[in-house]
């Protein structure tokens, strides 16, 4: 496949995984947790590197899931002690992120692991870091990792679709029916963590938040059905990734930045023209008294 082809495939894999996970993030009112986890995975990655001295995908995945779950646990713990939810998120992730930055600059100086790279990502390098797979031949490592993560995300969401739905909508009812809402919460944070770290190389820690939140927020404006919202969110993720890539080519600028920008454009478009909540629809709709 061509160089541009690999980049577009990588970006689309990021878009669809983030779009699917992002739908549940938004409906569980946990957009801030995405922000937190996208930063704390840095600590997970650095720690994994310091322990194993390797920058391989699997170590990073394990490290980041551990960091993500630790973040979730600590936020929950502080909250249970009476600290406001948002404040505890803010305290935990900035501390972990800072620790990650300090560790990178003092302990991992020689490694191919720098702050610029982890924050912004560098999708342009991805097609060169290839590994050889049976049948498929040479495939960029990031594409392999992202495909595995996408498969995990798809299986988790499809297999437990009704459990995700009920624990997002009414966790108290879920518990009273014997569905473990707490366990589902941590499982979900695990999904967010692996999605984030897999998307990391491509779009970086900061832009991954745009990919997680904005396509899902756009999809929410178009539909009243959860399954449709998920499909649309994934589609918007791909659209933003491809659209962003060509914006970057056209303006000769950062690819990850352009992709994040593209998610914003999709959102603005949805916000204006969506039939349900769009500004135009509200203007055109005959005014009815509120019920």
């Amino acid at each position: 496949m061509s160089y541009a082809g690999w980049i577009l495939l990588t970006a689309s894999l990021v878009g669809v995984s983030c779009g699917l996970v992002g739908t549940l993030l938004i409906l569980r009112r946990m957009a801030m947790m995405a922000d937190a986890i996208s930063h704390t995975v840095l600590l997970g990655i650095v720690t994994a590197f310091l322990v194993t001295r390797e920058l391989s995908g699997i170590h990073m995945l394990i490290g980041s899931v551990a960091a993500g779950l630790l973040t979730t646990l600590l936020v929950q713990w502080l909250h249970s002690l009476g600290v406001q939810q948002e404040a505890s998120i803010g305290v935990v992730f900035t501390s972990f992120f800072a620790l990650g930055v300090v560790l990178i600059s003092t302990q991992a100086g020689n490694a191919h692991l720098d702050i610029q790279h982890t924050l912004m990502g560098e999708i342009t390098f991805i097609p060169w870091e290839k590994s050889t797979l049976p049948l498929l031949g040479e495939v960029p490592e990031a594409v392999v990792t992202l495909s595995i993560v996408l498969i995990i995300v798809l299986i988790a969401i499809i297999a437990f679709y009704k459990e995700w739905k009920i624990t997002s909508f009414d966790p108290a009812l879920a518990l009273s029916l014997g569905i473990p809402a707490g366990l589902m919460h941590y499982a979900f944070m695990g999904l967010v963590s692996i999605t984030t770290v897999a998307s990391f190389d491509a779009v970086g820690a900061i832009m991954v938040v745009a990919m997680l939140i904005t396509p899902a927020a756009s999809a929410y404006l178009w539909t009243d059905r959860l399954a449709v919202m998920m499909a649309l969110s994934g589609a918007f993720g791909i659209l933003s990734a491809v659209f962003g890539y060509y914006i970057a080519l056209w303006l000769d600028t950062s690819i990850s930045g352009s992709m994040a920008f593209a998610t914003g454009v999709v959102f603005m478009f949805s916000f204006i023209v969506s039939p349900k909540h769009g500004i135009l629809a509200k203007r055109l709709r005959p005014t009815t008294s509120s019920i």
């Binding site: 929410y220 539909t223 059905r225």
Partner: peptide
């Protein structure tokens, strides 16, 4: 505001 309809909410009572 959750994206679902009335029938679906009732169905949730059967999930267990």
């Amino acid at each position: 505001d959750f994206p679902t309809d009335a029938l679906d909410v009732v169905l949730m009572g059967l999930y267990g």
